[in-house]
Amino acid sequence: MKPSPNLDMLTPALRARFDAMIAHYPVKRSALVPMLLYAQDELGYLTPEVISGIAARLELDELAVREVIGYYSMLRLHPAGRYHVQVCTNISCQLRGADRIWEHCRARLQLENHQTTPDGLFSLEEVECIGACSWAPALQVNYDFHQQLTPEKVDEILDGYRQKGASS
């Protein structure tokens, strides 16, 4: 018999956090979007198991949960790289040379938009404004901001993550 859907794949700390979050709303479903995002942060992507588990926890149809996942650009059904490089090319960044930064990232990582390196270390994405316009051009690696970029600075940043990835 298949076990009923659960959230055992998540850390106990995150499960406890979910319990606290759900209590913040008069309607349980309200916790859905942040729960999906935090689960993804732990697992790398939204696995079929965690989707079932979250649906069961909030007493929702899996289909409803999948519909929600499809709407939000940060939520994903497939793994990204361990370091997800998100380059803003929107107007404020464009005016400060974002195209050059984007091309530089593509060349350095040998990736096209939405691709992941074979070793799984890096993935690359062109993104919309990340709220760093006055410190443009900017990118985010996972949740970390890197601002006032130059190609040289990008090299340093990427090398830093490469080393971090190798040492752990």
Partner: peptide, 25 residues
């Protein structure tokens, strides 16, 4: 506090409320 998950449209006030109710924005 409550986290969004990427969608400009959720800044529009009624879409934000939909999102806060656990739906598409």
């Amino acid at each position: 506090s409550h986290s969004g998950a990427g969608a400009y449209e959720c800044g529009e006030e009624s879409a934000l409320m939909e999102s806060l109710e656990g739906k598409r924005g």
